[in-house]
Design a protein around this nucleic acid. Structure first.
Length: 478
RNA sequence: CGGGGUGUAGCUCAGUUUGGCUAGAGCACUUGGUUUGGGACCAAGGGGUCGCAAGUUCGAGUCCUGUCACCCCGACCA
């Protein structure tokens, strides 16, 4: 099989990446537009991906002692306003409820854009003693941000996510927890989504409204642009002071708690599409793929063929493999292309020839490789290949990431690299907001993060030439 | 929110320039049959307030005004 694009309905990924993206979203039936601008209908196949993500990530949270809860959807305006930076950051994109029935409300209610203020309001009443700490809560909900321009999964006005909110004894503990959660995300992205990331800290101008420090995992999309894939914030005692969240320590001293928050949203589905997808369509990482294996019987009218195919499918299901069988009356060729479009990691073709030889043909979505495999111990062969697919997808993405991080000594050089080759540039920065703002206005390039892993040993800022404060990853982002 | 583009069947579009009869095609869908190892074929059928609203006109998919949605590029952001 050659590399020609087999699915003509999809825009070529190298020709128009943005169009390619929306084609995938629609053709793979991940979501549909709704009658409210920027609000998407997540279709069963897209939602199944989200369920697999949330179920697995939720397990990771519970492993470290995080409990789930549910906060209200509405935030009274007065509550939102308590922390100055926070309200300034979010008020431009709040949706407001002004009426209840036909009555105008005394105080308007914001539809939660994030729930820091709600958790703070709760914590101030429930945290009294050092024995109440740490408080590790999380909720899986949707939030609303009135975005001007919207794109499916990447930027919708309502999106689903989890938001964790914790309270700790002091800044040291909250800082440690913030980093711990960042690592949970980075590991999850690697182990379940096959997405490699750069871990780092956001610069002051990119950090969360109200945070002392914001950490991020930045992933690189196929087109070289960055997508902030999850974040973890350390609030220190900023919110605690605004909301008066205090506890008595062992010595009877009244102290402010120190807080964190961290989140991962349905936006990650956009990352999966843009990191792994290709001209055949979606390419799902095996551990979160709603369908891991699709069995395609070649001769549908052949009773024996059909029966063998069904047997095979049940055999795989018994082993906990998410397998399904394509019983539609389409031609085999159609089914092949369709399974690729939907990103199913492994396809099993079974026809009369295979039955005769006690074998099946495994076709990998990641490499297109066709592997003739004996039916004996097929469950193990399938499991092994799914794991191999995961590893290969991760390695491929990792290679793309590494090959597209370059170094630059001058501003001109950096702009040239990002314009011509896309990707990220590693360079030094002075840390001042003005300098970052200027760069963004003139080139649309932003600082993605201050990476934990440092490689440079230079002294001056690439933008303004003043003494450098830290090393930064620059790039364009979604 | 600024600039540009597009709205006609589920999808992709023709028809709009120059207003004129019952609005078309391909794909998809339904039914029946023949097929089936890389998007099969034949036959019959269903599906439209031409984005929405108001206007001009004997007559509007076509002209005018408003409005909404979507796409692309900026600004804003997860």
């Amino acid at each position: 099989m050659d590399n020609k694009q087999m699915v003509k309905e999809i825009t070529n990924i190298e020709v128009d990446f943005a169009k390619w993206y929306t084609d995938i979203v629609k053709k793979a039936k991940l979501c549909e537009y709704s009658s409210v601008k920027g609000c998407m209908i997540i279709e069963p196949y897209g939602y199944a991906i989200w369920e697999n993500i949330s179920n697995n990530l939720d397990k990771e949270f519970k492993n470290i002692g995080v409990e789930n809860c549910a906060m209200p959807m509405f935030i009274p305006e007065s509550l939102l306003k308590k922390e100055k930076d926070h309200v300034e950051g979010f008020s431009p994109e709040c949706a407001w409820v002004t009426h209840g029935g036909n009555e105008e409300l005394e105080e308007r209610l914001c539809v939660r854009p994030t729930s820091e203020t709600l958790f703070c309001d709760y914590y101030k009443n429930t945290i009294k003693s050092y024995r109440d700490l740490p408080k590790l809560l999380n909720q899986w909900v949707s939030v609303v941000r009135w975005e001007k321009t919207t794109r499916p999964f990447l930027r919708s006005r309502e999106f689903y996510w989890q938001e964790g909110h914790t309270a700790h004894r002091d800044g040291k503990e909250s800082e440690e927890f913030t980093i711990k959660m960042l690592n949970v995300y980075a590991d999850f992205l690697k182990n379940f989504l096959a997405i490699p990331v750069i871990k780092g800290q956001k610069t002051d101008s990119e950090k969360f409204a109200g945070a002392e420090a914001t950490y991020t995992v930045e992933a690189m999309m196929h087109d070289g642009k960055a997508l902030q894939s999850a974040t973890s914030h350390n609030f220190g005692s900023g919110f605690a002071e605004a909301f008066k969240i205090q506890y008595l320590d062992e010595n009877g001293e009244l102290k402010y708690v120190s807080q964190t928050s961290w989140g991962l949203s349905t936006r990650i589905i956009g990352a999966i599409i843009m990191v792994h997808g290709d001209n055949e369509g979606l390419k799902l990482p095996p551990y979160i793929a709603p369908i891991q294996v699709i069995v395609v019987p070649i001769k549908m009218k052949d009773e024996k063929n059909l029966e063998k195919a069904k047997e095979l499918c049940s055999l795989l299901k018994e082993e906990g493999i998410r397998a399904t069988i394509d019983l539609t009356d389409k031609s085999p060729g159609y089914k092949f292309a369709d399974s690729e479009m939907r990103g199913i990691p492994l396809r099993i073709e079974i026809g009369p020839k295979d039955i005769e030889n006690n074998q099946v043909v495994l076709v990998r979505r990641d490499t297109h490789e066709k592997i003739v495999t004996p039916l004996f111990d097929i469950q193990k062969s399938v499991k092994d290949i799914l794991e191999e697919i995961h590893i290969n997808m991760y390695e491929t993405a990792k290679k793309h990431l590494n090959e597209n991080i370059r170094e630059a000594d001058t501003l001109d050089e950096m702009v040239k690299i990002i314009n011509e080759k896309s990707g990220f540039v590693r360079a030094m920065h002075c840390g001042c907001k003005e300098c970052e703002k200027k760069l963004k206005e003139e080139t649309t390039i932003t600082t993605r993060c201050i990476p934990f892993e440092k490689k440079l040993n230079k002294k001056t800022c690439i933008v303004c030439g003043k003494p450098a404060k830290y090393e930064v990853i620059f790039g364009r982002s979604y």
